[in-house]
Amino acid sequence: MKEKITSFEDFAQRLKEESMQIEPWKGIVVQQKKSCFIKIKIAPSLVMLFTFLFVTSTVVAAFSLTNLQFFGKDEQPMLNMYEMTEEEAKPHFDYDEFMGKHRGLLKRLREDLANDQYLAFLDVEAYEALGESALTYTQRPKKFEDFSQIPADFSPPFLLKEKLLGEIQFEELTYMYNYETRVDNLAQSMYQEALRLNVPYITTEHKLNTTKIDYISLMYGGFDFEYGFQITIQPVSDTLHTTENLSHYTKVVHEGEEFYYSESDQTLLYVHQTQTEQYLLEIRQTIVMADAKDKIPLEKLLAIAEELIP
């Protein structure tokens, strides 16, 4: 059992100790004859980093540090984005820690799921500590790397283009269906069943609502281009809580439309309303420039937004 980390010095020491244990499995790989390096395996691993965790809510936080307010053309408020206080964010970090140990397992379980199924996963210990919010829903994201393979009936709430600004090539589309068919009191019944079976976690499978998409991610560009972009779209209600630091976003009004722009993250946020839904659109530059000072101009992000918004 390791000692608890109580200071930055402890942290630095533990980091050093850990680094001394790390060795690559594959070792150094060189093909001598042709004097070229062989890339053995580039596994498409889905690393989920939750530095930008959104939690939808209709309850307005009383002590939020920062918020972004989006207004429509008619001056009506569309969306309030709140940065969580440390206190509010803590349960989410606690939850992350509980679920961290199941990462590999969840990945394997997702791979076995049918396209129209989702998995409900409950860790007994997490439920006892966090209650209902310990219940995890997961599904196998639908992924397309060839633009021509995107199903004809896929109809996103924006213009789907093979090239952005006429030059930046489509790389990947990922989307996930809605979990609308959630079961009432599921966490509690799963918990009881897990206790009865005396297991540390329990799963159940359910039908996704495949008529509704909850999350879309588009990748454009990459190393062969000057820029790379990830565009994400998700339906939102009138309030979002986030663990992200919102203080570096500034409001930009472009041709009557309101955007929020973060120069440090090279990210543009926009709320798009259709007749039935509203969506949060995030356009992010993903390629780090050789010269870190060489940021993508805001105008380019706005031009992309213009291309996407119908």
Partner: peptide, 11 residues
């Protein structure tokens, strides 16, 4: 690889 997720756990 960063994805906006509805499933809040860190892998």
């Amino acid at each position: 690889n960063k994805l906006l997720q509805f499933i809040p756990f860190i892998e």
